[in-house]
Design a protein around this nucleic acid. Structure first.
Lengths: 126, 126
DNA sequence: CTGGATCCAGCTCGATACTG
DNA sequence: CAGTATCGAGCTGGATCCAG
């Protein structure tokens, strides 16, 4: 994924910076809840409570936490309607849509190899 | 990603089973170290110690733990050469190669949107 | 309705030591 | 070299309460 060796030369400084940023983003994004949120939003516009219902097993805390993280990284847009009660809607940004493509790929993969994986587990158990 | 509502009918029983298995696999695989391992192996054949060097920051424990998990799910093959000292080699299975495609996609995505993400973070900070 | 903050039980992970 | 086991500090995440 990344270059691992740098010289000490000054022109490598920004390479190192970009590299560590890439790692950081990868670590943020490569986690179950973040990916499930991306997948759940898809091309829709969803409210906080809708997301909560959509994503089985996610807690209030994990949802807000990951939404903040995704917003901070510019993967989702958050729009607040100053009504009462408040209405907050989430959509994917262009970057978010880009990631969604690969998450969809992961979901497809999961279902395509479900049988193989079941078999592998049986063999492993033995 | 998954169906969320089932009737109580018996023919839904295996749907529920497949569904919960899919979730479980997704949770196993959608984590930083597992994905970095898949990416690191690629189409090569690597030894334990090579993987350890290849993947920056992974501990001995996390590597073995994730390798076992990936082996159990049939994503990697583990071949032991009964020499002394022992030589153990890891390669991706077909299922593993399939997943690697999507992981590559994630890495590409990371680099493509690096700039956007940096900008988003600056805006978010303000 | 959304979401921030706090508490704390339980799990994660790194370090270390030990085996074949 | 590869792998297992153990221990403990520290983080995670669920529950709960409060606020706008």
């Amino acid at each position: 994924m990344v270059t691992k060796q740098f010289s000490g030369s000054p022109e490598d400084a920004d390479l190192r910076r970009a590299d560590s940023l890439a790692r950081e983003i990868f670590s943020d994004v490569a986690n179950k809840w973040a990916l499930l949120i991306i997948e759940a939003v898809g091309e829709r516009t969803l409210r906080f409570s809708e997301l909560r219902n959509e994503i089985e097993g996610i807690s209030h805390k994990m949802l807000t936490q990951n939404l903040r993280m995704l917003e901070r990284n510019g993967l989702i847009d958050r729009s607040v309607h100053p009504t009462v009660p408040p209405r907050v809607e989430y959509t994917l940004t262009e970057a978010g849509q880009g990631l969604r493509g690969t998450v969809d790929g992961m979901c497809d993969w999961t279902h395509r190899y479900l049988g193989d994986i079941e078999d592998a587990r049986r063999r492993f158990g033995a």
